[in-house]
């Protein structure tokens, strides 16, 4: 392994570990380019930030794959993904806009990954909309893998069964919200 490759691997490791300093450096380098593009293509600063952060998220997720290798500069990679995300967002509003559709390149972000990402975003929205105590129960159980017994103690349920009962109701509600697309 030569030195360059070694540095690249180190960076990928840091991204995977969500090292804040590294993320901040990447953000600083990559953001201006995408912001400029989005501002020139009917978006505002809030759109640019949102899309760039989504691209960063996808980069972090990609690094989770142990076989992931950086094939281009990180900022180029982020710009590619961000640009596609933005074009897709635009075409959602104007599905017949052929010029836009033609611009989308699927290399950086295959349709399958994109659909999965849309689900993830929708799920996040639904979790936020769940309200308490459902949000806590669902997040504790499925994300932090906390045991039902501990959740029951945390939330002052008289026993784990009551908490389990409540968790089931929350789960059903969350699934229904996902089906209704978070409406």
């Amino acid at each position: 392994m030569n030195k360059e490759q070694q540095i690249a691997t180190e960076i990928v490791d840091k991204i995977r570990g969500q090292d804040r300093k590294t993320l901040s450096q990447i953000y600083e380098k990559g953001y201006p380019m995408l912001e400029k593009y989005i501002l020139e293509n009917s978006g505002n600063e809030a759109d640019a930030a949102d899309v760039f952060q989504d691209a960063m998220y996808l980069l972090i997720k990609k690094t989770a794959d142990p076989n992931f290798e950086l094939s281009s500069k990180i900022s180029t990679f982020l710009f590619g993904i961000g640009r596609n995300l933005w074009l897709k967002q635009l075409t959602k509003k104007q599905p017949d806009h052929e010029a836009l559709v033609a611009e989308i390149e699927f290399d950086d972000l295959p349709e399958e990954d994109f659909q999965k990402f849309e689900r993830t975003k929708l799920m996040k929205k639904c979790i936020d909309l769940l309200g308490e105590p459902c949000k806590t129960i669902i997040v504790q159980f499925y994300f932090f893998q906390t045991s039902m017994k501990e959740i029951a103690e945390q939330l002052h349920y008289t026993n784990a069964n009551n908490a389990k009962n409540q968790k089931y109701k929350c789960f059903v509600r969350l699934k229904k919200m996902m089906l209704d697309k978070g409406e």
């Binding site: 969500q18 600083e28 930030a49 993830t120 499925y142």
Partner: peptide, 23 residues
Amino acid sequence: EIKEGQEYGLIKETLREIHAELV
């Protein structure tokens, strides 16, 4: 999906903070 949704939320949160620090 729940796990990923929550993880997305947390990552996004960190990135928003970074954004606020930089921009």
